[in-house]
Design a protein around this nucleic acid. Structure first.
Lengths: 233, 233
DNA sequence: AAAAATAAATGATTTATCTCATTTTCTTTT
DNA sequence: AAAAGAAAATGAGATAAATCATTTATTTTT
């Protein structure tokens, strides 16, 4: 039996209240989005979408946590985002070459709602507010990628790792103490360095009292220092 | 007197036949785009838009050539694109934080048409085909930036420089022999390396018979080899 | 609870790339 | 055409970061 749970998952009308984007839609538009929509549960490590395959859907994460990354050369990945509930993804292939340009895999038990790209397109054409919001979403991603390009090409390792930690603080956990959802290898895939370098620099940060590490649990002790390091450390 | 040449420049209706995007617009929509529109000429080296300033306009290059780049730390730039006529730009700040996220400067005498972002937004809301095209444009840029992220973080110098040359061949000149519009420093800003490294690697390429260099003029002799090098040289 | 597997830490070595100094070539100005 | 200025080429040395090998901790499986 397929792992599709259409029966017991929220429908687009309740999603409405959670995803700011969907709140722009009226009943009929939500009905379009809802038709053919399905939700799937993924276990940790499972692939939600795979780079290079047909981009047939727009996805909303409805529970759990996932990582979004580019697959480069020789199995080297570049993690671009951690995805939390109510975040929309689908990527730049939608409405262009209709291919996914990144891979998304679950970091824990995760629920994802799949909306047909064709239906999303219909609604984009019907509702200018929604269209504008999607365009804004796309532009915000674009700006974030510019920041990433600069971080990854112009900062050295401590600065890049500081950026990864600040990303987790600012965008994901919003508290200075949290459990790292990523391994050393994955932190390296986020900040473009080897796992050995991640280990060494985390140790340095710890020795300098910038962070406290206890296994997977991390606490940012000197946020301002970390921000300084981010601005070229 | 201002350097604004509204009198003798093409208006949006003739632009229509040149810019695929504008051909989607009807008379009224073109009139909206046209209202308050102005065209400015820039000399080589002049700044067309400056990163960080208010993003009030969408631009179309109508003549000449420009470079689009991110300004990072310590006056270090990252060139993302060479802009040719009929190419639209404005960046991810449009409709989000209303700031330009990159700087564009003229590489030669250049004409640029400025359309008010507010008018563009009106037309996006009126015309779903146009909205969809703008979204597609935005998505294509997004995909190109993914490729750039991988090139810049995962390839070493010869591969990155090969990518810069292949970009000039594929996207700009479409012939194997052309006059380099960029200095060694700028080629370095495109491929994230120092001007000295650019010089050395170009020399290597020349010694291996992959390219022929004569001052600013370059000819790609072994396109396939260059493509091989791009895929991890 | 022990064993196996995986992840993290640590150290020694190598390598890609940058920096800085100098010379040569090209371009612009006078 | 000469002089000045800018860009490119070249070489030697410094350095950030990767690689590889080994040990120590953590998880996961049995």
């Amino acid at each position: 039996m397929l792992n599709v749970k259409s029966e017991n998952c929220i429908n687009c009308e309740t999603c409405n209240e959670r995803s700011p984007l969907f709140s722009l839609l009226n009943k009929e538009e939500l009905a379009i989005m809802n038709s053919g929509r399905f939700e799937v549960q993924f276990d940790a490590g499972e692939t939600i979408v795979k780079q290079g395959t047909s981009a047939t859907h727009m996805m909303v994460l409805t529970g759990g946590m996932a990582k979004l990354f580019l697959q480069g050369f020789d199995r080297r990945n570049l993690i671009l985002d951690i995805i939390l509930p109510w975040k929309l993804f689908g990527g730049p292939g939608l409405f262009t070459d209709m291919r996914y340009h990144y891979t998304v895999t679950a970091l824990e038990k995760t629920h994802v709602c799949f909306v047909s790209a064709e239906n999303a397109r219909k609604v984009i054409r019907l509702n200018p507010d929604f269209a504008e919001s999607i365009l804004r979403h796309c532009n915000r991603n674009g700006a974030a990628n510019f920041d990433r390009l600069i971080s990854l090409t112009q900062k050295q390792m401590p600065g890049r790792l500081a950026d990864a930690l600040l990303y987790l603080y600012n965008e994901i956990f919003r508290t200075t103490k949290f459990v790292l959802p990523l391994s050393r290898l994955e932190l390296g895939e986020m900040s473009n360095m080897t796992k050995e370098s991640v280990t060494r620099i985390l140790k340095d940060f710890e020795n300098e009292g910038i962070i406290a590490l206890d296994n997977k649990s991390i606490q940012i002790l000197k946020l301002e220092t970390l921000k300084d390091i981010s601005l070229r450390g």
